[in-house]
Every structure is written in C-alpha cells, then in structure tokens.
C-alpha cells in the first residue's frame, strides 16, 4: 500500500483513524467521543490543559493503558485500516509498530549498545553483525551516532538528558515502527536539547508518523503539521475541541476555547 504524505512523497508511516472513542478509568470517564484522522508521515501535536486526557489518549494508541487495572475502552482506533483493539491484534506486535518516547528519558541501566539492541533482540534478531548495523543506523537516524560511537559499551545513564532522550528515540527506531508517539518528550530538557529533538522530529517525519503531546504551544506551532486541541468538559472528561492544520489552529481558530487557550487566557 502506498501512502502519500503532505508533500506528496511516498510514506511508510501509518495512518490512524479514531472513531467514537470513549475511555474510562473505572467509573471515571477520561475521554469522550473522540473522532480524529491522523495523517501518515506528518507530525500531529496534541495540546490542551493539564488533565484533559492528552496522555491517556496517546497511551491508547499503543495500548499502554492495557496495563491499568479497571480501564475500559469503547469505540475503535484504526491503524492502516485495522482496529487495534481487535482480538486478533497481538499487542506486542502493535507496540513494535507504534513506538513510544516518554516524558522523562528512560534509558535502561545497561550499555548504550544494549539499549538499542534490546528491541531487535526481543524480536528475534540474534546475529551480532545485524545488530551492530541496526544500532549504528538507529543512532544515526536519531542524530546521536557521532556523539556516542566511541563509547557504545558505556552505561546509557552517563549520557546527558538530551542525549538520553535521543537514545530513547533511537531505541524506538531500532524496531522500525510506523508510528512514534511522544509524550512531552522535551519537558525535562533544556532549550538547546529541545531544539535538537525538534530538528530530529522534522527529519523523522519524512518516514514516520509522529504524534506528540506537548504543553509547550510554541513547540506545537514550530514542529507540527496538524494540531488537535483537547479540553475537559464540566465532568472532567476530555474531549476534542478542534482539529486542523497547525497554521489554521494557531492563526485562525474556529472555537472560542481554542483561541482563549492559545492566546494564554487560561491553561
């Protein structure tokens, strides 16, 4: 299947379609009636005030919320036309396809090489040459290779915060996902490291579908192609207020609440 991205180039990144999604933690409804079409090979930013369900939504996309006891899902999320909640979908395969970068860099307490090789190894790649190639490619894609190529055997925890986050991105790339989810990937980083990650995201968006949750509206405006604005309803359930191309959302929002939020009147 050939998918075209915004610029008309071919794209291997997955397209995501969310239909009438409701999500509950026990009796509390965290998300209400979300409908969203996320384009392939583009960066989609999800913005909104704290507690509006942005992270919950993101974690639904690779079913990380499966781990939470008592959570319940209604509706569907389709990745390239297939519902990810379908019983025939293997959650392990799904997570390999839909990688995730977390708010706080979370490299494993093992060597840089082993961090990157971890994913491919779990998926059956044992050949040392092959692993070395994957590690090198992933680190190059994550723009980290030049900084760490001489110390692949060292502990990943010795790297700086920004380097650790790029390592985590490289780790995700090592299993060749279609979609990369990022949950406030720069909130623990300084401006220079943030800039590097943002550049990296732009480069990666040529081949991957990236969905980023961010509190930083400038960041959303800088890097994303499309933006979704989430907000809480009176009963604290999160819902989608407005969704469109980033330039439109930021220059000409249709909804009053969106305008209030992006102009900094609340949130």
């Amino acid at each position: 299947m050939t998918i075209y991205n915004f610029n008309g180039q071919t794209c291997r990144g997955g397209k995501i379609k969310v239909n009438n999604l409701n999500f509950y933690y026990g009796s509390f409804q965290a998300l209400r009636n979300i409908n969203l079409d996320i384009p392939g090979c583009a960066i989609t930013a999800i913005i909104g005030p704290s507690g509006c369900g942005k992270s919950s939504f993101l974690r639904l996309l690779n079913r990380m919320n499966d781990l939470i006891y008592g959570s319940r899902i209604e509706g569907t999320i389709e990745l390239d036309g297939k519902n990810i909640f379908d019983k025939t979908v293997d959650v392990v395969d799904l997570r390999k396809n839909v990688g995730m970068v977390f708010q706080k860099p979370n490299p494993f307490p093992i060597s840089i090489f082993d961090n990157i090789a971890f994913g491919p190894k779990q998926h059956g790649k044992k050949n040392k040459m092959e692993l070395e190639e994957i590690v090198e490619n992933s680190l190059k894609q994550a723009a980290l290779w030049d900084e760490v190529k001489d110390k692949l055997g060292q502990s990943a925890l010795a790297l700086s915060g920004g380097q650790q986050q790029r390592l985590c991105i490289a780790r995700v790339l090592s299993v060749e996902p279609e979609v990369i989810l990022m949950d406030e990937p720069c909130s623990a980083l300084d401006p220079m490291a943030t800039l590097k990650i943002e550049d990296l995201m732009r480069t990666l968006a040529k081949n991957y579908t990236i969905i980023i949750v961010t509190h930083n509206m400038q960041q959303a405006a800088r890097v994303s192609d499309t933006t979704a604005f989430f907000m809480m309803e009176p009963d604290r359930a999160g819902s989608l207020v407005e969704y469109g191309s980033t330039s439109e959302i930021f220059t000409n929002p249709k909804d009053k609440r969106t305008e209030d939020y992006i102009t900094g009147r609340f949130g």
């Binding site: 690779n62 799904l94 396809n97 494993f108 994913g119 779990q122 998926h123």
Partner: peptide
C-alpha cells in the same frame, strides 16, 4: 519507566523482566 520503556518496544512481560527489570 524501565518496564514501560521495554513494553513500549514490544517486549513481552517475561522479556521485560529478564532483559530490563532483573539487570536493574
């Protein structure tokens, strides 16, 4: 966060325990 990181890479629970949790 180690467990989540491993699971998000598509590791199974046992792979996560063996590859990340026990070494840590």
């Amino acid at each position: 966060s180690y467990r989540e990181g491993a699971l998000a890479l598509g590791a199974t629970k046992w792979q996560t325990i063996k590859g990340v949790v026990l070494p840590a």
